[in-house]
């Protein structure tokens, strides 16, 4: 069991999302950065869809009441165990009685804490993700708070073997980090002004020529009115060639829509299922993890990618994750 001594800014239990219920208006929820979440799970021997804990900007303080195999992936929120810094993107064996803390946010803005076995919360509509607004799923349907105690589920053979390996080198220390980590070509480097690849949206052609050019050339800033539902951006105003009303239709993770005030909104994990604003673009799935790590004040640039290229990049990324899975198993031979 682990318990929270401090909750952090927004700490919630999430998995890859709730699918199959969007037709009823039930949003998917789920992690913002799927790559970091999946990797953190794989690094402790979990299935990639196990529930992890998503931490935002200011991390929590977590007490370990038992030995646990963990990994932390995503943004660097300066994790430390009993005062000693620990590294991201690798398995760590944490001993009973230790305390995990987070400090300054050095890069990105969200980190994922995976624990071997996965966080033990019930499935609600086939998912463990917290749907904050409807108060369902995750841990009691809400963000984690002081005093919350989380159980983890029984571990599998892979996790058990990792724990064995790490126990050998831990000695009397409070924790033991693996001497290997994920290859750096898999996880993104969180640049100052990232270039995010975007496909033209379904209503792209309705925007004025000037807006079309601006969208793919000027930087936009993430405003403080940004959350898990969507990022509101500030920058050059975008407008349609002529005002027109459209009917609401489905939106997707990474859809960029433009309300009549001209400021684009990027829809993210807690997006509504449908929307009625014109869609100027759609972020390529492979670049969503980069987008999800941006915080208010950060700048972003959009560069055009064809629809086929985006799909090609996606298939390539999935192959790399497969290779990571096999690589981890090889380590344990």
């Amino acid at each position: 069991m682990i318990s929270l001594t401090k909750p952090g800014l927004l700490t919630s239990v999430q998995d890859l999302g709730r699918y199959g219920f969007q037709k009823y208006g039930v949003i998917t929820s789920g992690v913002m950065d799927q790559l970091a979440h999946r990797t953190s799970n794989l690094l402790v021997g979990n299935e990639e869809n196990e529930a992890t804990i998503e931490l935002t900007l200011l991390g929590p303080v977590i007490d370990f009441e038992e030995d646990k195999l963990i990994s932390i992936c995503g943004g660097n929120l300066s994790p430390s165990i009993n005062g000693e810094p620990v590294r991201l993107w690798r398995p760590i064996l944490v001993k009973e009685g230790s305390q995990l803390r987070f400090g300054q946010c050095i890069s990105g803005c969200r980190a994922y804490l995976a624990i071997a076995g996965g966080i033990g919360v019930p499935n609600v509509m086939d998912s463990k993700s917290t749907y904050l607004r409807a108060g369902l799923g995750g841990f009691k349907g809400r963000a984690l708070n002081v005093g919350d105690k989380l159980e983890t589920k029984p571990i599998n053979d892979v996790s058990a073997r990792m724990i064995d390996e790490l126990s050998k080198c831990s000695g009397d220390e409070n924790f033991a980090e693996a001497d290997w980590s994920v290859a750096s070509d898999l996880f993104p480097s969180y640049e100052k002004i990232p270039s995010i690849r975007v496909m033209k949206g379904r209503q792209y052609h309705l925007f004025s020529k000037e807006s079309q050019d601006t969208f793919f050339s000027q930087p936009f800033e993430i405003t403080p009115q940004s959350d898990r539902m969507g990022y509101r951006l500030k920058g050059p105003s975008l407008s349609l060639e002529e005002a027109s009303e459209m009917l609401s239709e489905a939106v997707n993770f990474g859809t960029i829509q433009v309300p009549s005030d001209g400021n684009p909104i990027v829809l993210l994990a807690d997006r509504q299922t449908t929307g009625g604003y014109p869609k100027i673009g759609q972020i390529a799935t492979v670049d969503l993890p980069l987008m999800a790590q941006l915080k208010p004040g950060d700048l972003v640039r959009f560069v055009e990618v064809s629809h086929e290229e985006a799909q090609h990049l996606y298939l390539e990324r999935e192959m790399k994750i497969q290779q990571l899975m096999q690589g981890i198993l090889l380590k344990l031979r």
Partner: peptide, 29 residues
């Protein structure tokens, strides 16, 4: 899954599953 709206139905699919099933159609996205 799918999402119905007033005049549209959006279908969400898994590109990896399609690719694995139809390796022979490698020219097709």
């Amino acid at each position: 899954e799918y999402i119905p709206a007033f005049t549209t139905v959006a279908v969400f699919y898994d590109p990896v599953k399609i690719q694995k099933k139809h390796k022979s159609d490698f020219l097709k996205f």
